Amino acid sequence: MSDNKSQNLDFAMVLASAVHDMKNSLAILMSAITELERKYPAKDDDDRKQHAVLQYESSRLNSALVQLLGLYKLKSQQLPLNINYNNLEDFLHDQAAQYEPLARPKSILIDIEVEDELEGCFDVDLVASVINNVLGNAIRYTQSRIILSAYYEDGIVIDIEDDGRGYPANMIEQQENFIKSINHSTGSTGLGLYFAGQIARLHESGGVQGSIQLLNNPETQGGIFRLKLPE
């Protein structure tokens, strides 16, 4: 039995190492894409759309690799948690800025609404990885607008709302087990939501863990991803 566990661990380490190498190669590729776009600007709408596809798909792949590495580190208890006070308005502006190049060609507005002087204690890198993944999906499914908002409600709450068709009923119904929300017709694996849930639960204070929630706006029917972080 111990040999099997050792083999499983070794195999996991090999996969994690391969993912890490792929992530490094992808970072070089993404940098090259950015440089090519700077050197050879889009001449028409078709060029801009192709540039957006390159940016979006490379960003999406990078997010998936980050999640895989994060999950490996979680399982092997190697994922450090670096909790600090962060200004929510600055934090959300930083995340939105990364996705402006993807949103602009699609005429998508990213609005930010944050309570004045709102600060929260969280691991900025881990929470950023969650927000980035959700923003990437929101750009894929929204019609014209994404709202990033943050407010206080027994802790810090961050909402990412789009004006698309909303989350499917089966995803909302299976919120306690996101990994079961695999849908091969849409390409959804549930990995991003599972990862987000794990990151949220790492944030704990006074016996209260962070959480995520999916819901649809009853007025616009758009989807809302909600991240709650304890005080």
Rank of each mutant, 00 (worst) to 15 (best):
G206M: 03
F122L: 14
F91C: 00
S211M: 12
G210F: 10
I108K: 07
A150Q: 08
K39D: 09
V114F: 00
L92E: 04
G190C: 06
S58A: 15
V208N: 03
E153W: 00
E231T: 06
I199G: 09
Q221V: 05
P218Q: 09
I131R: 03
I182C: 03
R140H: 09
L229A: 08
L214K: 09
A42V: 10
I158E: 10
A96V: 13
V134D: 06
I110A: 11
E161T: 14
D46I: 15
L29I: 14
V53A: 05
R38K: 13
F225G: 11
Q67I: 06
I160G: 01
D10H: 10
S63Y: 04
L26E: 11
L227Y: 02
L79K: 04
E231F: 12
I212K: 07
L109Y: 04
G155E: 11
L36H: 07
P105I: 05
Q77W: 01
A150E: 04
G136E: 03
N133K: 07
F178W: 13
L229Y: 02
S58R: 01
L135A: 10
D94Q: 14
V127F: 02
N84D: 12
L193N: 00
I224W: 05
I160H: 05
D3W: 07
I28M: 12
Q78Y: 02
N216K: 06
N24D: 12
G222A: 11
